[in-house]
Design a protein around this nucleic acid. Structure first.
Lengths: 103, 103
DNA sequence: TTGATATATCGAAATATTTCGACATGTAAG
DNA sequence: CTTACATGTCGAAATATTTCGATATATCAA
């Protein structure tokens, strides 16, 4: 047993924590699923198909962006979001690796 | 854009939600990391190296077990837990697949 | 410059999660 | 049977998250 409870959590797990929190919420999952392959969507489009208030959608988008699973760019008045596939790929392959080696 | 916000969340994502929630908490991550490869630990052992009260550890173990990432078996007075590697493998490979096909 | 539009942020209320100690349950030992 | 021990569950308090409407900021159009 690894008894060092207070030691630093491995880097791979640290980066994952925010991703796990972000993807562990149903509304945020639905936002992720509203993207078609390679698609960019602005906040208005995402808010329109949601059952939540615009400001709440904005809050969830912030959590997804800060976790790294979405990226965003402001174009004119609008902010476009898209899925950060490469981060997701990396995170999940890191977990898979960690699992094979240490669990 | 996939506008059907109210449609069912894909099975692969549903199963993942609980896993994500479970692994998105620092204390639960630390519990996961205290297992050496293939090891079984009982509640007392896990609680001993934790900074939390025994009943709180019990609560976190329940969440991890219900998410499927830990399995458990009662032997005598003690309940032993171990990491469900095959479930974790499956979940992460499902996400990776979904990602390649739909994102 | 004024007005309209898109988004973000703020503060408060509602809701959910975490945490603890006390108590309940199950199991083995004396 | 009684006691001791391991774990689970309960209820309440502390804390965190979610949610909303109102307001702020930034951008473009008239």
């Amino acid at each position: 047993m690894n008894k060092d409870y207070s030691r630093a959590i491995p880097r791979a797990w640290q980066d994952m924590a925010a991703v796990f929190v972000a993807l562990g919420d149903e509304h945020r999952q639905r936002i992720m699923l509203s993207f078609e392959p390679g698609e960019r969507l602005n906040v208005g489009q995402i808010a329109e198909v949601s059952t939540l208030a615009r400001s709440t959608v904005s809050h969830h988008l912030k959590i997804l962006r800060e976790a790294g699973v979405l990226e965003s760019e402001k174009i004119g008045k609008e902010v476009y979001f898209w899925v950060n596939k490469s981060l997701l790929r990396e995170v999940f392959s890191n977990v898979a690796d960690y699992l094979e080696k240490n669990a």
